[in-house]
């Protein structure tokens, strides 16, 4: 019961980007994934990438209210890593030996597919931001991602007043939205 309770606490912490929760989950599971990847033609860096990808899946799911973890975090992470690594191996044509499956696994196919869709959306946003150019990119990031106050932004960027900064931000935002929505498709 306590272990289960701890797991729920960890998940809630993860959803809130709590550093302690992230660290605990990371510490408890990384070595397992590392040994799995290393034993299946992978490197330490592969293991890190795969594990962090799995962590993102867990994080994005933990943020959803509908998400209920039906198994241990360990099993879930292992299952995702195993699936992702298999895909990676197939993609790299390195699928020489059958992957050892000694650990218990759960079905994570849907979660991974959903995450891929989200990753695609994030990629669109990143490209749109990237192609904006400065100072629009930094201005929008400061306001929307870092949640800075308009007055502080005006000061740090060197605008004479917040209204000018707002005006600039508005123009930048229009461009960004145009770029983003030209590629973004809800249905896909």
């Amino acid at each position: 019961m306590k272990a289960e309770f701890n797991e729920q606490v960890l998940l809630k912490g993860l959803a809130k980007n709590d550093a302690k929760a992230i660290e605990t989950i990371y510490k408890n599971n990384f070595t397992m994934v590392q040994s799995f990847v290393l034993n299946n033609n992978g490197t330490y860096d592969d293991a890190r990438d795969i594990f962090q990808e799995a962590m993102i899946v867990l994080y994005e799911n933990a943020k959803l209210e509908s998400f209920v973890l039906t198994c241990q975090i360990k099993t879930y992470v292992y299952s995702i890593c195993r699936r992702l690594w298999l895909k990676r191996l197939q993609y790299l044509n390195r699928f020489t030996t059958p992957v050892e499956s000694l650990e218990e696994t759960v079905s994570v196919e849907e979660d991974i597919d959903f995450q891929q869709k989200r990753n695609a959306d994030f990629a669109i946003m990143e490209r749109a931001l990237g192609s904006l150019g400065e100072p629009c990119k930094s201005l929008l990031e400061a306001y929307y991602l870092e949640k800075k106050d308009m007055t502080d932004i005006a000061a740090s960027f060197g605008y004479t007043n917040a209204d000018n900064a707002k005006n600039q931000k508005y123009k930048c935002l229009m461009r960004l939205k145009k770029l983003f929505f030209s590629q973004y498709n809800i249905g896909e």
């Binding site: 980007n17 550093a19 992230i22 990371y26 962090q52 962590m55 993102i56 994080y59 994005e60 943020k63 989200r118 959306d121 994030f122 946003m125 990143e126 929307y144 991602l145 983003f180 973004y184």
Partner: peptide, 15 residues
């Protein structure tokens, strides 16, 4: 979208 992107980016950074 931009919020989600921001959190995702931050989370990656945290990782």
């Amino acid at each position: 979208q931009i919020d989600a992107y921001g959190y995702n980016r931050e989370f990656k950074h945290q990782l």
